[in-house]
């Protein structure tokens, strides 16, 4: 773990994200930067909350998160939005719910 509490296995990927975000900013300015960071947070970050303590290695966690997130992250937001009135608020709520699930859920995913 680093001082910021980030596991070292993610550091190269964070470097990769920074490079891609800079490239996107060069092409599309602040919109490009925001879009890349948003994509990383939504499509990778949200599923990664659940996968971070599994027995997968760092690369598998990132890649599985990305491809699962493309289909299921927005479904999580959409589902929360069936209850909450705002889609925007549902984005934050989905993160809170997934984080809570990762703490209290039975450790089916965490074993091996």
């Amino acid at each position: 773990m680093t001082r910021l509490g980030i596991s070292k296995e993610y550091l190269p990927w964070m470097g990769s994200l920074a490079v891609i975000a800079i490239a996107a900013a060069m092409l599309f300015q602040i919109t490009g930067l925001r879009t890349i960071l948003a994509s990383a947070i939504i499509f990778v970050g949200l599923p990664l909350i659940l996968l971070r303590k599994t027995g997968l290695d760092g690369e598998e966690k990132i890649m599985f998160s990305l491809f699962i997130g493309l289909g299921l992250s927005s479904l999580a937001v959409w589902t929360v939005n069936r209850v909450l009135p705002s889609f925007r608020i549902s984005i934050i709520a989905a993160f809170i719910i997934v984080a809570a699930v990762s703490i209290i859920a039975p450790k089916i995913l965490h074993k091996n």
């Binding site: 919109t31 925001r34 879009t35 948003a38 992250s73 927005s74 479904l75 959409w78 925007r88």
Partner: peptide, 22 residues
């Protein structure tokens, strides 16, 4: 998911077209 992804990009990307196109 497809269309919610577009909406997420618009909201978080801060623009109507470019975030969806990216």
């Amino acid at each position: 998911p497809n269309h919610a992804n577009y909406a997420l990009m618009q909201i978080l990307g801060g623009e109507r077209f470019i975030p969806v196109l990216i």
